[in-house]
């Protein structure tokens, strides 16, 4: 077993573009849940409309990629409005089910034959992000001993991590303002906030839109990252990943989602590499675990991790344990 290789892989996973993209989407989720208490289980839906908004703009309407990203953001705003108007007046648990259902409805819709002229249906879309890679200032690969990142990956990493950090910083500014105070009061008790003259619905909507926009940008980056797009890449499990990331880092902490994503992807890639090596080296007999089962093991591990986190350390890595003890609801 090559532990160095496993570690390098894991580190690469922790720093790679995917970790950054998930961090960005989780920052959005943190606005929803961490600061406003909205149980959004449809964050992947925002990523989907963001990604498709971008790709369709480029492919079907020949707009520049940058404009495409703006279109993706606009789609997320519309989705937030459509979703929010009926559901934000509902009790939290209804919202959870309505959002997960809405994300699934979107996925069914985008992959349907009706939408095929625009979305490519089940075949998806490809090659729409050339504009992004043409701007790549990096000319060669980065080689740091065991690490090496291609120029392409490097460019994506820089952009995605910048986006995630900027988003987190912006959220930090916002939540430490009177606006953030109202948001947190809505999370604690929306009736109390209303009794003090706060338009709770408007704040929830603003929160839903803001977090959704971060989700949409993450979706666009995801599409750019792989240069291909398929509705079935936007399964509900992505949302569960994001929840795990947010809680792992620490909900209602500005840097929680960033830290959470790094650690999450480190652990996930570590497990992946480790199992692959262990099966390859015969340490785990293939009768017990075939290489094709590794994907399932990793999903199971995420599930178990989410459970254990929520039971034993719901405040996550940098969450405020004291704050959590007050959670009597």
């Amino acid at each position: 077993m090559d532990f160095l290789a496993i570690l390098t892989n894991a580190l690469r996973g922790a720093l790679g573009p995917e970790a950054a993209i998930y961090a960005l989407a989780a920052v959005g989720l943190n606005v929803h849940f961490g600061y406003t208490g909205l149980l959004n289980f449809g964050q992947v839906g925002f990523m989907l409309v963001g990604a498709y908004g971008t790709a369709i703009s480029v492919l079907s309407f020949e707009l520049p990629l940058g404009v495409g990203v703006l279109v993706g953001i606009a789609c997320a705003v519309v989705l937030a409005l459509i979703l929010g108007i009926p559901t934000l007046r509902l009790r939290g648990d209804y919202l959870a089910i309505a959002t997960i259902a809405a994300a699934e409805v979107l996925r069914y819709l985008y992959r349907s034959e009706w939408a095929e002229p625009l979305t490519g249906g089940v075949f998806g879309l490809k090659q729409f992000a050339d504009g992004f890679f043409e701007l790549n200032p990096f000319t060669g690969a980065l080689d740091l001993g065991p690490f090496d990142f291609s120029a392409r990956a490097l460019w994506l990493m820089v952009v995605a991590w910048s986006a995630a950090l900027l988003a987190a910083g912006f959220v930090g500014l916002l939540v430490h303002s009177p606006w953030g105070r109202v948001l947190r009061s809505v999370r604690e008790d929306e009736l109390a906030a209303r009794s003090l003259g706060k338009n709770v619905f408007a704040y929830k909507m603003q929160s839903l839109v803001l977090g959704g926009v971060f989700g949409a940008i993450a979706g666009s980056l995801l599409a750019v990252n792989s240069q291909s797009l398929n509705p079935d890449s936007f399964m509900p499990i992505i949302t569960f990943y994001l929840w795990t990331i947010m809680i792992l880092g620490g909900a209602s902490r500005v840097m929680g989602p960033i830290l959470g994503s790094v650690v999450f992807w480190f652990l996930l890639t570590f497990l992946d590499s480790f199992l692959r090596q262990a099966i390859g080296a015969g340490l785990i007999p293939s009768s017990v675990l075939a290489p094709s089962d590794i994907g399932a093991v990793r999903f199971a591990a995420v599930g178990l991790g989410l459970m254990l986190l929520m039971i034993f350390r719901p405040a996550g890595l940098i969450g405020n344990q004291k704050e959590l003890r007050l959670d009597v609801r």
């Binding site: 908004g53 369709i56 703009s57 079907s60 309407f61 519309v78 989705l79 939408a115 979305t119």
Partner: peptide, 11 residues
Amino acid sequence: LTALFLGVFLG
């Protein structure tokens, strides 16, 4: 719904 999600912004 279709129009909204599939690019109402794009004409």
